[in-house]
Computed example of a mutant assay.
Amino acid sequence: MGGRLQGKRALVTGSTSNIGRAIAEAFSAEGAHVIVSGRSAERGGVVVDGIRARSGRADFVKADLDGSAEASYALAREAMSVLGGGIDILVNNAGIYPGDSTADTDEKTFDQVYAVNVKAPFFLTAAIAPAMVEAGGGAIINLGSWITRLGVPVGALYSSTKGAVETLTRAWAAEFGPRGVRVNAISPGVILEPTPGVAHPGEVMMNGTPAGGMGEPQAVAHAAVYLASEEAAFVHGIVLDVDGGRTTTAVIAA
């Protein structure tokens, strides 16, 4: 176990699987007391049990971040209570991804995706950032996406929500940074736990990149540990690409 986040208290939304789970596990391995949060108590319990089995500190707080201010404020209150009064690190990771085309997206889906992906982290940050300021500082990490800058023919709704999150990152860095709260974002590429012998449709999206394939959740978790730690004390308002070079580099096959 490392110590880069020793004594820190962290809340990671959507941390019962994939990227969120990897971040929660990495934070705990670096000494943080982590609140694992999501809709499934069963999956959350598995993550918490795994962290505790490795001598880490973790608790589960169930939350359905539906975009209502009350749901976000309720999660903030319960997480702070379980952690003993404060949160030092917030990771806004929870999100949903409908892959419909623009013409096939109905209004209900549109409103739901914006509620979960934009409104929920907005009000959660509104609930937690001022408390961080009062406590003397903190770190907020938002999850963006590579498709906010490199358009793909599906997922226009999702990519627009992540564009909003990346814009909020810069605005919040300006708002809260001078008062001691660093706000940054991570923009992952196609990230999935590998399944031996099973091809994933997302694999093709990473063709022509320096990495040459999909990334694993731990790659994003390493970046999150950096942004949450004192090593990033002079880092404000950035979007850190962890995408195998997808948005910056094209590899030309010989």
Rank of each mutant, 00 (worst) to 15 (best):
M1I: 12
G3T: 15
L5I: 04
Q6T: 13
R9M: 07
S15V: 14
S15I: 09
S17G: 09
N18Q: 14
N18C: 13
G20I: 14
G20T: 13
I23K: 00
I23P: 00
F27D: 05
S28E: 04
A29V: 08
E30D: 07
A32S: 13
H33M: 14
H33K: 07
V34S: 07
I35C: 05
I35S: 05
S37Q: 02
S40E: 07
S40I: 11
A41P: 12
R43K: 14
G44Y: 01
G45L: 09
V48M: 02
R52G: 11
G56Q: 03
A58D: 05
A58V: 04
D59R: 05
L65E: 06
E70R: 09
A71C: 07
S72W: 01
S72K: 01
E78H: 09
V82W: 01
G85C: 08
G85L: 03
G86N: 02
I87W: 06
I89E: 03
I89L: 11
L90M: 12
L90H: 04
N92A: 02
I96L: 11
P98D: 04
P98Y: 01
G99K: 09
S101K: 12
S101L: 15
A103E: 15
T105H: 07
E107L: 15
E107N: 15
E107T: 14
D111C: 10
Q112C: 08
V116N: 03
A120F: 02
A120W: 03
P121I: 09
F123H: 03
F123A: 01
P130E: 03
M132A: 06
V133Y: 06
G137M: 04
G138A: 11
I140D: 00
I140P: 02
L150Q: 15
V152L: 15
P153E: 13
G155M: 03
L157E: 03
L157R: 00
A164I: 11
E166F: 03
T169R: 04
W172I: 05
P178H: 02
V181S: 02
V181P: 13
R182M: 07
R182K: 08
V183R: 00
N184F: 05
P188F: 04
V190I: 14
V190T: 06
I191M: 02
L192S: 15
L192I: 15
E193M: 08
G197D: 12
V198Q: 14
V198F: 06
H200M: 14
P201Q: 10
E203G: 06
M206T: 06
G208F: 02
G208N: 06
P210H: 03
A219C: 10
A221N: 03
L227M: 11
L227F: 08
A228V: 11
A228Y: 08
A228S: 08
S229Y: 04
H236A: 10
I238F: 06
L240N: 05
D241M: 13
D243V: 05
D243Y: 00
G244E: 10
G245Q: 01
T248M: 14
T249V: 15
A250W: 13
A253G: 10
A254G: 15
